[in-house]
Design a protein around this nucleic acid. Sequence first.
RNA 1: GGUGCGGUGCUGGAAUUGGUAUACAGGUUAGUCUCAAAAACUAAUGGUGGCAACACCACGAGGGUUCGAAUCCCUCCCGCACCACCA
Length: 727
Amino acid sequence: MIYDHKKIEAKWREVWEKEEIYKTSKNPKKKKYILDMFPYPSGATMHVGHLEGYVATDILSRFYRMRGYDVLHPMGWDAFGLPAENYAIKTGIHPDKSTHDNIKIFKKQLDVSGLSYDWDYEIDTSSPEFYKWTQTIFIKMWQKGLAYKKKAPVNWCPKDETVLANEQVVDGKCERCDTPVIQKELNQWFLKITDYADRLISGLDGINWPEEVKLQQKNWIGRSEGRIIKFDDIEVFTTRPETVNSATFIAVAGESDKFTGRYVTNPATDEKIPVWEASYVMLDYGTGAIMGVPAYDERDLVFAKKNKIKIVKKPYTKKLIGEPKVNYHLRDWLVSRQRYWGCPIPMVYCKDHDWQAVKFEELPVTLPNDVDYNPRGKSPNASSKTFQEGAKCPICGKKAKREVDTMDTYVDSSWYFVRFVDPKNNNKIVSVEASKKWLPVDEYVGGGHVVQHLLFARFFWKFMHDEGLVDKSLGDEPFLKLRAPGWILGPDSRKMSKRWGNVVTPDDIIPKFGADTLRVYEMFMGPFDVVKVWNLTGVEGANRFLKKVWRLFQLPINPACAGRNSQLSNNEINYKLHKTVKSVTEDIENYKFNTAIAKIMEFVNVLTVHSSQITVHKLGILAQLLAPFAPHIAEELWQNVLKQKGSVHASEWPEYDEKYLVSNEMNIAVQVNGKLRGQITVPTQIASDELRVKTLAKKNKKVAKWIESGRIKKEIFVPNKLINFVV
RNA sequence: GGUGCGGUGCUGGAAUUGGUAUACAGGUUAGUCUCAAAAACUAAUGGUGGCAACACCACGAGGGUUCGAAUCCCUCCCGCACCACCA
């Protein structure tokens, strides 16, 4: 029988679905919530890079299930967003239709990859059942004063005709279309994330995240401690108040560098100093004005020299003046979007009562279908004839006007992981029981570069936690552990893109090699978190490995002749078996999937060479170790070749026994002056006996040659490992 | 400019509580099988010298600590990522 991945994979996926082996426990005892960052179902198909993280969480989910954990491993769709709307403008196809068509394709791709999601927990942020609760949370924030509307200069993209958050402006350009962003005064809704700035920093200490991602969060928040000092009516912010007596000018934010003609008093010296406009001072940081201290600050020095301002260097003052103040780079989050395909902001405007929230029982405020979503500088919802129907002030009951803007899609992804634990609850965002059963997220996998998503999601969680919307006992961080897969580059070492024609999709690989090969290759490519280059010969290598495993299982099993035509004793092979189980277990826990596979390969090689040692027991363990990585072939081998009862994925993960991890003999390295000169093999019992090892080592011919000429000055003995003679 | 991460065979990478460098793959070469090819299998594969035993040299470069350094410290070079007039 040859390895026919097509037959095997389709067959087992059908069986798994019928037998519902991935259904989530209703009553978890030992829980693990394992989560991917959910995808935006775009028109471009998923490529092998997207799959990397999904395979990793699938391996973890299968592994922890086998270890007796109750696992929640859901998947859903970040379905609102600009691309679907832009597509609609171009083609006339409604975003709801194109998005859901895409979801079907994505889901199919995930399925053929053998991913063990429980689709009963699927969510879709564009469904009224979901966004009803997005609106609920928005209103709860408004009630707490955390959502407010104000006129503000905002970043405006003239091409997309929408405002952008600071985070969506890259080098002064729109992150989506690269159009230069302009400033425009508009009335906008903001969320007061700045109230949480300090907690968003301090919370990082207790969570298991990559240091670089934590650092990015800290930089983004950009906390700096300093003082506000008054120079007459001009306030400046400084982090070095002790240098105020050396301040020789004031600079306020301006377009070009020029003297204003004004002078103000330096409160530390009582001297009159000039007020300048300077382009290097930013309007929206601190007070928009600085004190110029050319003696201690490089940029101030450059400015002073250029404009012939005097430079004075005095020792620091001991007495600090001004008021202590903490400044942040982080701004309040602008969430209004003048767009259609998003969650409507559930607010109404009443002439007498200003902005009011729609009553909870009237939610959701649904997106109208009768809109013209061509951009005309205002929200498409304003063009709907039905959208304003029934809008009334919750206080006086008179007719009111609905907010026509929608929310930034980052709002949806800021709390979706909460909804996943109780996705069908019609009465609450999430029930207390469900939140206590599963939250917080234990393993979160996705791009570490998404600073904003992680910051916003932590902010929402902290709010929900403070308000008791999720149980307070769950702590105030939502993602206990985070790991980010490294990019997979195309075969030409460039980022996969249509433009380069170097996109590799699962459909390019699975029909020919199978999902198991794809999964094994992706995990074997290199360390999970580093950038890797796609290489087809590597895929063939992974396929060769699975074929080799297949052939190994076809060999006759005959325990009676074990040890007869093999140089390996039972003890030795048990040592290798148990060591493999130990390392694979530890490697999976630590996301070291590449070395886990390498160790399985080593064991396969051992069994292939010493085929007389093959037993059902050993092959069974091998199939189990392989199961998280290559679920289909493992199942076929487990059930059909080894005739085991039930699914390998429902079997109990093998335990290793410490007693087998001690072999009979040990290799001791012998060094002379730190250089390896020989090796001796000694019985394990004496491997830590310095005197006996020393005696044996000196007798070794190769070693003797190097020590005969001189007297041994020193001997260093590391038990079980090595002995070093210094001559 | 700042901060962080990294640099190991022909290639991807193992090895980091200091203790036998190059696990596991990929590639290449030779061989077996075949009319031939593919597949599969076997062997070799860091460099230099040597028939060989063996020796010396190699973990970006240089230095240091140590009996012993890919691993720790210092200086420099290179690459990647994020932030960037942040007062």
